[in-house]
């Protein structure tokens, strides 16, 4: 244990040789080491393995046969790639803007403007899908958009006297955006709500007294003050949307005819349906690259440097 003594800036009650051992750079690395070990095992090594794998043509026989850039050359001639890329773009962008950030912001702003109790009830309801197993949640959406007259939507249509629709064929993209969005919005909602509640009440009071409308308060005070949380959720959700495919797998499995095949799902199909591990790894490598690139773009876009305040205390 280190005990602070007011004797001097480095006045820990560990003196002499031990003091020297703990000073400077070495100390920082020592304290960082548990995290570094975890990051290495669970993040760095898989990424490195994936990248190495991307230069092989490994298949179901698991042979490490290095083929140079062949996988990447294949990719440029793969006729599915443009389709998959466009799907990924549409899926990620619409889920993100409409739900994971858009809907989450809207719910947070609305439920923090009404009475606390109703707000809490509403937000708790929104959390329910999170507690549902993915498969059950996926099946729920399949039931909602079931093409027979037993589906929920078709039931509603029947009430209006309309014929049943084959939703999964007519609007597959919309359905996977909805399915991912309704569950994905809850995280942003939690973070935005906490951030809004952390804004000192007096800012809102001052604005109300100064005659600001609800919209003006949201635009001029709330949103700028939770800018950092919006950046975080946007960046985080972009990455998780790029990498996630489980609901798409359950609901449409990329179909019909690749209309909902996104990059991550295509990677999965390549590796685990066609057993082309080498090509799958190459696809993954590109996905990681896209993720890193988008994270950097967000940081630039939001002026990350300006957001980070210098620490109020100086630590050496």
């Amino acid at each position: 244990m280190l005990v602070w003594s007011p004797a001097g800036r480095r006045g820990f009650i560990l003196r002499g040789d031990k003091m020297k051992f703990f000073s400077g750079k070495l100390k920082s690395w020592l304290f960082l080491s548990p995290m570094l070990i975890l990051v290495t095992i669970f993040f760095a090594i898989p990424v490195v393995l994936t990248v190495i794998l991307a230069f092989t043509d490994m298949d179901y026989r698991f042979i490490w046969n290095f083929v140079g850039l062949m996988n990447f050359r294949d990719m440029s001639t793969d006729f599915l790639i443009p389709k998959v890329l466009l799907n990924t773009l549409i899926y990620t962008f619409s889920t993100l803007t409409l739900f994971n950030v858009g809907m989450a912001l809207l719910i947070s702003l609305l439920t923090t403007s009404i009475s606390d109790r109703i707000g809490v009830i509403f937000r708790s309801l929104w959390m329910l899908p999170r507690l549902t197993p993915s498969v059950v949640y996926g099946l729920l959406w399949l039931w909602i958009f079931d093409p027979t007259k037993y589906g929920l939507m078709n039931n509603l249509f029947a009430l209006l006297g309309l014929p049943p629709q084959d939703w999964l064929h007519t609007h597959p993209m919309m359905i996977i955006v909805f399915a991912n969005g309704f569950i994905g919005a809850s995280m942003g909602m939690l973070i935005f709500t906490a951030a809004i509640k952390a804004i000192p009440e007096d800012y809102f009071r001052a604005a109300l007294i100064d005659g600001a409308s609800w919209f003006m308060i949201v635009r001029k005070i709330t949103l700028p003050l939770i800018k950092w949380q919006i950046l975080f959720v946007t960046a985080y959700q972009t990455l998780s949307l790029l990498a996630s495919f489980e609901y798409i797998l359950i609901i449409t499995d990329g179909g019909p005819v690749y209309r909902t095949e996104v990059w991550a799902l295509y990677t999965y199909h390549t590796a685990f349906s066609s057993f082309r591990f080498g090509y799958g790894a190459a696809l993954s490598t590109i996905l990681v690259g896209i993720g890193v690139l988008s994270a950097f773009i967000y940081l630039k876009l939001f002026g990350f440097q300006a957001l980070v305040q210098k620490p109020r205390i100086e630590v050496d």
Binding site: D202, R205, I221
Partner: peptide, 19 residues
């Protein structure tokens, strides 16, 4: 509502918008 009272208020912590 406050908006229609034609009042101003000075707060203890000033409540100046930091951004």
């Amino acid at each position: 509502p406050p908006k229609y009272r034609n009042i101003s208020m000075v707060f203890q912590n000033y409540a100046l918008y930091p951004h």
